[in-house]
Each structure stands twice: as C-alpha cells, then as structure tokens.
Computed example of a mutant assay.
Amino acid sequence: MRNAVLAILAALVLAVAALPAGAVAPDEILEDPALEQRARDLSANLRCMVCQNQSIDDSDAPLAKDLRVLVRERLVAGDTNGEVIDYLVARYGEFVLLKPRFSWNTLLLWAVAPLALLVGGATLFVAARRRTRTLATARTTTLSDTEQAELDRILAEGGDGR
C-alpha cells in the first residue's frame, strides 16, 4: 500500500514538473485579474525575438520581459487586444506573431502546405494509374508465333539464351 502511495506521489511530481514553466515574474503580474488574463492571452501568441520559437510568456530572455511589460503597460493604458497587437506588429513586424495573420503577404506561407499535399496526392494517383495500365497491358499482351517459337527454343536449351 505504501509503495502505491509513493508511486502516485512520484507520478504527480513528474506531471507537475512536465508542465511548461511560465517566465512571468511576480513583479510583472497585474493586480486586476481580468487584465492579467488578457496580458497572458496576448503574450502566449507573441514570439520572443531572441528565442524565436517560444512565446514571450515562456521565455526568460530580457527582451521577452520587456515585451511582457510593454503589453501590460498598453493594457493598463486602455488599449484593446487588437491595438496592442497592431502596436507590436508596427514596431517589430509580422514576425512577432507566433501565428501570422492571413493576408496577401502571407498567402504563400498559408498555401504551400495544402498545395504540396495536393501535388503529392495527384502524383501518387497518376503513378498508380500508370502502373495499373502497364500491368494490365503486360497481362494481355500475347507473343507472336515467332516469339513463342524463340521462347520455346530458349527454354528447351536450358533457359540462358546462349
């Protein structure tokens, strides 16, 4: 019984340790829980310009901290979520967004994966049809009398054709 309790306790400790650690320092947290939640939602979708594949919410980089503070300052000043995002995009470019907006500038980015999937599927379909036709043609092809006689002669001699 004691081993089972220890195993459950160890599993809980490992589960908690596996959770992503937020890099938000206690001095950054806003007193208003609604504003803090908005800040967390925004910063979870903003890219750390140093780490590049982490959100500013998860990054310990000094620039990420500056961006988290900037987001909170803008929210306290009364900006909407959209205004905060627009401000950061104007300042740092679309790269600051972890999920880029759909626009003419990002059309290629959004279209490449589905197009590659379609091209790959079409290629496989054409190759399969071509193979099926080749196999069907090979099965229905008969030898002429001359070819059949040559084949019989080769087989009678031992099959090596010499």
Rank of each mutant, 00 (worst) to 15 (best):
5 V>K: 08
152 D>E: 12
115 L>C: 11
131 R>K: 07
84 V>L: 08
79 D>G: 00
105 N>H: 11
93 G>N: 00
2 R>F: 14
127 A>D: 04
162 R>P: 01
50 V>N: 15
41 D>L: 03
9 L>Q: 05
61 A>E: 11
24 V>W: 07
103 S>D: 08
94 E>Q: 15
162 R>I: 14
120 G>T: 13
37 Q>S: 09
15 A>K: 11
67 L>A: 09
58 D>E: 10
107 L>K: 02
35 L>I: 02
144 S>N: 10
41 D>A: 06
108 L>I: 11
18 A>M: 06
127 A>M: 10
53 N>F: 09
49 M>A: 07
17 A>H: 01
62 P>L: 13
127 A>H: 06
4 A>T: 11
144 S>R: 03
150 E>D: 07
81 N>F: 05
37 Q>M: 13
136 A>W: 03
43 S>K: 00
137 T>V: 12
27 D>N: 13
51 C>V: 09
135 L>A: 15
143 L>I: 00
135 L>P: 02
65 K>I: 15
63 L>Y: 02
110 W>T: 15
80 T>G: 03
29 I>Q: 01
42 L>G: 04
24 V>Y: 02
63 L>K: 09
160 D>F: 00
112 V>L: 13
106 T>R: 13
31 E>L: 14
49 M>T: 11
30 L>N: 10
14 L>N: 06
44 A>H: 03
118 L>W: 03
84 V>Q: 05
35 L>Q: 09
113 A>T: 10
111 A>W: 07
6 L>N: 03
75 L>F: 09
50 V>G: 02
111 A>S: 14
102 F>W: 07
29 I>E: 03
129 R>C: 12
63 L>S: 07
161 G>H: 00
161 G>R: 08
117 L>V: 15
150 E>V: 15
44 A>V: 06
110 W>N: 14
50 V>E: 07
1 M>P: 01
146 T>S: 15
126 V>Y: 00
134 T>D: 10
46 L>P: 05
130 R>M: 10
69 V>W: 00
112 V>R: 14
155 L>C: 04
151 L>T: 10
52 Q>K: 15
66 D>M: 11
90 A>Q: 13
45 N>S: 05
72 R>P: 01
22 G>R: 02
10 A>I: 06
31 E>F: 13
139 R>T: 00
46 L>V: 12
82 G>T: 12
127 A>K: 08
79 D>E: 07
62 P>Q: 09
81 N>M: 09
73 E>Y: 06
134 T>M: 10
151 L>Q: 00
39 A>Y: 14
128 A>G: 07
116 A>W: 00
64 A>Q: 08
43 S>V: 00
152 D>N: 06
57 D>W: 12
1 M>Y: 13
2 R>V: 14
58 D>V: 05
98 L>V: 03
115 L>V: 11
150 E>H: 04
127 A>R: 04
89 V>P: 03
98 L>Y: 05
24 V>E: 07
126 V>I: 13
60 D>P: 03
122 A>S: 03
